[in-house]
Design a protein around this nucleic acid. Structure first.
Length: 276
DNA sequence: ATGGGTACCTGTCTGC
DNA sequence: TGCAGACAGGTACCCA
């Protein structure tokens, strides 16, 4: 579910809420949801109890909550959401994890359980370092330039859509925004990475930034169940120009939007506007 | 190293 | 109405 704009929207809501709160108790109702990525952290609850949350930051689609000792790395997977409140209802079947503080509870809900919550001694050590190790540059970092993209893509032969989704070149564009950014840049998603000119890489880098920034302004996309930390839905899906619009006319040229499958993921594109 | 495929889950929608 | 099958925002891991 959540791509960078959704995770950043959650982070912004979270940062104001969590800073300075001390974890009184931890409820783990589904251990698989917590340690899916890195089994063996037997002291998970002990490392959290009594700790104070300092902030909420983000790396790619991961959230990092630094604590006064160590920190918590979280990923929302395809269907995860975080919410907080002072009087939570009894947990539902997908409410796997609560951080209870004196002034409210942070709750992870994740029906598909593709998410992860991992304690780590630091963001650049232990479990967190291992999970973040292969991530590409942040799209809003000045280091993410057309030239960066060009240098990375010229060494790959996969389709450019697949390369964007990989997250090892640039992070944050998932299936929706990879499709939308390629439309914005006028690039056919099937184009081989190493066949993209420098100029088109410049256009693509700009399109990735623009697409993610627009989505962030809209509070992300809610296709089904995305909610920010206040339970609010996003609105970017209303602006999507190709994603989910198979068989509908392109809003720019009128050609029929197509759906293909690349790397077991759906890709939407306009054959009129997007060229190899 | 790269690329391709599978695995991990549940809920929802579509077509028969 | 029931049921099988397809599909959904992600990524870690295995193998060639």
């Amino acid at each position: 579910m959540p791509e960078l704009p959704e995770v950043e929207t959650v982070r912004q809501g979270l940062a104001k809420w969590v800073a300075g709160r001390t974890i009184a108790t931890v409820e783990v109702r589904h251990p698989r949801a917590i340690r899916r990525h890195l089994p063996g952290d037997a002291h998970f609850i002990a490392m959290l109890t009594g700790r104070t949350i300092l902030d909420a930051s983000r790396r790619g689609k991961y959230l990092w909550l630094p604590l006064d000792r160590g920190g918590l790395l979280m990923h929302l997977g395809m269907s995860g959401s975080l919410s907080f409140g002072n009087a939570f209802d009894a947990p539902g079947p997908h409410d796997h994890f609560d951080l209870v503080t004196a002034r409210g509870t942070l709750r992870l809900t994740d029906p598909r359980r593709f998410g992860a919550v991992v304690w780590s001694p630091a963001i650049d050590a232990g479990a967190a370092a291992k999970l973040l190790a292969g991530l590409g540059v942040e799209p809003f970092d000045p280091a993410f330039t057309g030239d960066h993209l060009y240098q990375a893509l010229r060494r790959r032969r996969v389709a450019v859509k697949t390369a964007l989704l990989g997250g090892d070149i640039v992070v944050g564009a998932g299936n929706i925004y990879a499709c939308e950014a390629l439309f914005e840049a006028g690039i056919d998603p099937r184009t081989r990475s190493d066949r993209l000119s420098r100029a088109r890489c410049e256009a693509l880098a700009e399109a990735v930034r623009l697409t993610l920034a627009r989505a962030l302004e809209s509070g992300g996309s809610t296709l089904r169940d995305f909610r920010d930390a206040h339970g609010m839905a996003g609105a970017f899906q209303l602006q999507a120009r190709v994603y989910g619009r198979v068989g509908k006319p392109c809003l720019r040229c009128g050609a029929m939007v197509r759906r293909i499958v690349q790397g077991q993921r759906a890709t939407f594109f306009c054959p009129g506007c997007q060229k190899r």
